[in-house]
Design a protein around this nucleic acid. Sequence first.
DNA 1: ACAAAAGTGTTGGAACTACACCCATGT
DNA 2: ACATGGGTGTAGTTCCAACACTTTTGT
Lengths: 238, 238
Amino acid sequence: MINRMLEQYRAQTKCLVALDSIIFGFDGDELKLLLVKRGVEVYDGTWSLMGGWLQDNEAPEHAASRILFELTGIQDVYLEQLYVFGKPDRDPIERTVSVSYFALINVADYDDVISHTYEAQWFSIHELPTLLFDHADMVKKAIERLRYKATQHPIGFELLPDKFTIPQLQKLYEAIFDFKFDKRNFSRKILSTGLLIKLEEKQKGFSKKGAYLYRVDNEKYVKFFDSFLNFIPNGFLD
Amino acid sequence: MINRMLEQYRAQTKCLVALDSIIFGFDGDELKLLLVKRGVEVYDGTWSLMGGWLQDNEAPEHAASRILFELTGIQDVYLEQLYVFGKPDRDPIERTVSVSYFALINVADYDDVISHTYEAQWFSIHELPTLLFDHADMVKKAIERLRYKATQHPIGFELLPDKFTIPQLQKLYEAIFDFKFDKRNFSRKILSTGLLIKLEEKQKGFSKKGAYLYRVDNEKYVKFFDSFLNFIPNGFLD
DNA sequence: ACAAAAGTGTTGGAACTACACCCATGT
DNA sequence: ACATGGGTGTAGTTCCAACACTTTTGT
């Protein structure tokens, strides 16, 4: 019996399993994507997401983190699983199934590391170079997911520095949705979440008047996560 | 150069890739899951999702459909990709990465095929047997996703017959969320989508008075799909 | 003084919740 | 006649979108 089962397993095709991560960043103005130059000349001029292969005894999410670190020095960021891409011909060299992840980071936090040590580079999502394989599909899906999540969670905070202003946050949301919001309604809505703590300091330099800095109330932020479903009566999820 | 690249590919570990589908059904009263008895004696008493392996030259979503058909005779249903499960030890026999899918079907549509020809069986989601490997995690994730989607899309229609009554639909939502809704508010909300067309006929037999049957306005339903993001001003998506 | 960005308040309409009674029919 | 589930309306509240002027300060 057990033998028959093992035979069944042995008869199956095995596949390479790749991990590809879409890293979003925000520089205060535009939404950016982190890409690397594929280190192989055949694909000259094409750029790639942060990609690598799954190793033995490694969970996919760990592999994705490891690869991101190896390629960029970025560590300890929240990577969320996005989608599996597995068309038989997606990688022309060999059959590969790719699990994609995405992350949000604050460009300023990593700018030095990335540009000095690694061959990664930020690109505006409006001016992307040619991407490897089906990486453009992955990016498209990631943007959809980012928008979706940004409507549900105050996920945008992840892309900003610890201290930020309301106008900065608004610019970020405008970059994500490619849409201008009314600033009065925007600030009311954001502040009504109760997740922001107003600081004494003002941001100087950017505007003449200067804008108040805020930081996220981390305790509330954590509680906030992963819950609210429109259909469900208030109080159901408490 | 090309050789170096091919070597790089060759050096990588390959994995078995499995597909596992979570099939939800509704029988008018309870939310159900379709499971099969794993055909191997070692796992006596444990049941399994609709699982199988990815073959050469087969896209994962096709494999998932094929497997579902082979195991149950179910065909042409919408399978949505759910999540990848890939912990190194999730399948104790051999390293396998599993891509999970989920689907919603109307139990009545397939009841005959399933029970007479195949070894699949419906289980109430409140009384599930022991499940193979990490299939319980998959089910948990699928229920979360189902609830999430049900708040955003009128996805519940998929689980009902073509013609159905408002009380039936309400029971379905109550089964999905495990929560009782106010029938006046429920019917107002559902009808306000404009997606339902009231028919002349009434459902007979279940209640004394009989309830009006409705069907989905397919044209509107399609338009409705995949869009509305709370944060975006009305009209933005038109 | 003026330009540039920050900050703030009101109003009308829509949508949501909570809630209770009558209707049609099979037994 | 009565029991069972089906169907409907209202009032108070909250939430949302639309909209324009004043404030601060660097030049």
